[in-house]
C-alpha cells in the first residue's frame, strides 16, 4: 500500500511538473527551479490524499475507448442540461419542483465514484449532494430528472469501466 502510494507520488510529481512547464510558456532556469519547488511542496502537502493504483481502473486501450464513449455522452448531457436550465431560468413563472432522492450507486473504486458524482452534477437537472459507499443523495429540479438517473447511459458506462 505504502509502496503503491510512493509510486503514485512520483507519477503525480512528473505530471504536475509537466503541467507547470506547459503553463510557464518560456523555459529558463528560474521557471524550472520555481516549478520544481512548487511541485515538491504540492506533492508533500497532499501525500495522504494521493490515491494508489488499486482505487482506479487500469489504464488500457479498452479503458481509453470506453472513456471516450463516456465523454461523448457527457458532452451531449452538458449541452442538453444547459439548454434546459436556460429555459427554466428565463421563463417568467420559474417552473421547478425541487426535491431530494437517494439513489443506489454500484461503483467501488474511488476515482470512478468521483467522476460519477461529477457526471451526475453535469447531467440535466441533477446535483450530487452526498456520496457514500452504497448510495448517492441527489438534488433535482424536477422529479422526472431524478427518475432518469436510474439505468442511465452514464451509469452503464461507469459499470463497464469498473469491470476493467
Amino acid at each position: 500500500m505504502q509502496q503503491g502510494k510512493k509510486r503514485s507520488a512520483v507519477f503525480l510529481f512528473i505530471l504536475l511538473f509537466a503541467f507547470w512547464m506547459i503553463l510557464a510558456a518560456d523555459i529558463d532556469a528560474l521557471s524550472i527551479i520555481v516549478g520544481l519547488m512548487a511541485t515538491l511542496f504540492v506533492v508533500l502537502y497532499g501525500f495522504d490524499l494521493i490515491f494508489s493504483s488499486q482505487e482506479a481502473s487500469r489504464f488500457t486501450f479498452g479503458f481509453l475507448f470506453k472513456s471516450l464513449k463516456l465523454m461523448v455522452i457527457l458532452l451531449k448531457g452538458i449541452i442538453i442540461s444547459n439548454l434546459q436550465v436556460a429555459k427554466i431560468v428565463l421563463s417568467p413563472s420559474l417552473p421547478i419542483k425541487p426535491g431530494f432522492r437517494t439513489i443506489k450507486q454500484p461503483l467501488k473504486k474511488d476515482l470512478n465514484r468521483t467522476f460519477y458524482g461529477n457526471s451526475i452534477t453535469l447531467t440535466p437537472g441533477t446535483l450530487t449532494v452526498k456520496l457514500t459507499d452504497k448510495d448517492i443523495i441527489v438534488h433535482g429540479l424536477e422529479p422526472e430528472y431524478l427518475d432518469a438517473l436510474n439505468e442511465s447511459d452514464i451509469q452503464k458506462c461507469f459499470i463497464d469501466l469498473e469491470r476493467l
Partner: peptide, 20 residues
C-alpha cells in the same frame, strides 16, 4: 439563475451548469 432561484441547491444548478 443565481439571483432568481429560491434556495441554495437550485442556485447551484444554475451556476454550475451554465458556467461549465
Amino acid at each position: 439563475g443565481l439571483i432568481r432561484m429560491p434556495d441554495v441547491f437550485s442556485r447551484m444548478h444554475a451556476t454550475t451548469k451554465c458556467d461549465t
